[in-house]
């Protein structure tokens, strides 16, 4: 059984605590900040889901935003157009994204890295084409407007209350990732990434796991899409088109193949647009520069960099204790 270190537990507890009291510090009525907090949640889920796929299993996806879009649109169509209750609607979009993820999984079993990257990119283009052209269903280029706020038993959720729902869902996804990673399944994922042939010869059903991880990761992205729809109440294809690069930046900058990495990445990169408001026009380029710098100088991201710093310090501490 994997044992979590005491310091790690403390860090997690402090992070969750800060996340929970944040709305009260910033003001529960301050929609600007609350919206940023909620964006951490859905981007965090997205980054974790991408990390599971790319960081752990080594399957490159360049169109992960598409699953977020499908999740969001499915939720919007089910609740507004068909008048479903929000719970079955979320469930419905999870199922749909899971199944479409399996479809990509089918491709990942058959194709090598670059071919798969191409397929996922193409898939996301197709999704945005459908969204733009099928206006009767999706609102087309004008976007999908008027998604209802979260309402339970007649109680309409305030934005900060929605944040707690989103936070709870994020923690749930984090827990699922944690359990998957530190288990037989997670070991299989990593084995597949490092040496697929050896993995197969150790009894791992390589294609089965690739197939499944695509589904799981897509469903997580779908959930993020639902939260997005609930928060913004408006959907349009180009937001999701752009989010693919943003997500990749978050995952890479935070550190792929580690549990904390994507969360750190989300917090850092998610805050950038707010800090760089005057340069909003050049934001994509800034992401680009950041990505390249991180890949060049911090191959394991911020998390990996911090970890090796701490390890080094620990080692020198031990050395200084040993040598008088």
């Amino acid at each position: 059984m994997h044992k979590t270190k005491r310091e790690t537990k403390i860090v997690i507890f402090v992070m969750v605590f800060i996340a929970a009291v944040m709305p009260f510090i910033l003001g529960t009525k301050n929609n600007y900040f609350i919206n940023i907090l909620i964006s951490y949640c859905y981007y965090g889920i997205m980054a974790m889901s991408l990390n599971l796929l790319v960081g752990y299993t080594g399957q490159i996806s360049l169109g992960h935003g598409a699953f977020m879009a499908i999740g969001g649109y499915t939720y919007a169509i089910l609740t507004k157009t068909l008048g479903w209750h929000f719970l079955p609607a979320i469930f419905g979009s999870l199922v749909l994204t899971f199944l479409l993820g399996l479809l990509i999984g089918l491709a990942s079993c058959k194709l090598h890295a670059i071919f798969l990257a191409m397929t996922t990119l193409g898939f996301s283009k197709v999704v945005s084409l459908i969204i733009i052209n099928e206006g009767w269903l999706t609102g087309g280029a004008n976007g999908f407007v008027g998604i209802k706020k979260l309402t339970v038993f007649g109680h309409r959720f305030m934005n900060y209350q929605l944040y707690f729902v989103a936070l709870a869902l994020t923690l749930m996804v984090a827990l699922i990732c944690y359990r998957l990673i530190y288990s037989k399944t997670g070991r299989a994922f990593q084995a597949i990434r490092t040496a697929p042939i050896a993995a197969a010869s150790m009894g791992i059903n390589v294609n089965g796991y690739k197939f499944l991880v695509c589904g799981i990761s897509a469903a997580m992205a779908g959930l993020a899409g639902c939260i997005y729809a609930l928060n913004i109440n408006y959907l349009s294809a180009d937001i999701f088109d752009k989010s693919s690069i943003l997500l990749l930046t978050m995952t890479v900058v935070g550190g792929m193949g580690s549990l904390f990495g994507p969360i750190i990445g989300t917090l850092v990169i998610g805050t950038l647009p707010e800090l760089l408001r005057p340069f909003a026009e050049y934001l994509d380029g800034i992401y680009g520069v950041v990505i390249i710098l991180v890949v060049l100088f911090m191959p394991h991201g911020i998390y990996g960099g911090m970890k090796s710093l701490i390890d080094r310090k620990r080692k020198s501490d031990i050395l200084s204790e040993v040598t008088p």
């Binding site: 040496a195 010869s201 193949g257």
Partner: peptide, 10 residues
């Protein structure tokens, strides 16, 4: 395997 195939990061 002849040319060792371990899962290096694990």
């Amino acid at each position: 395997f002849q040319n060792i195939l371990l899962f290096d990061q694990m």
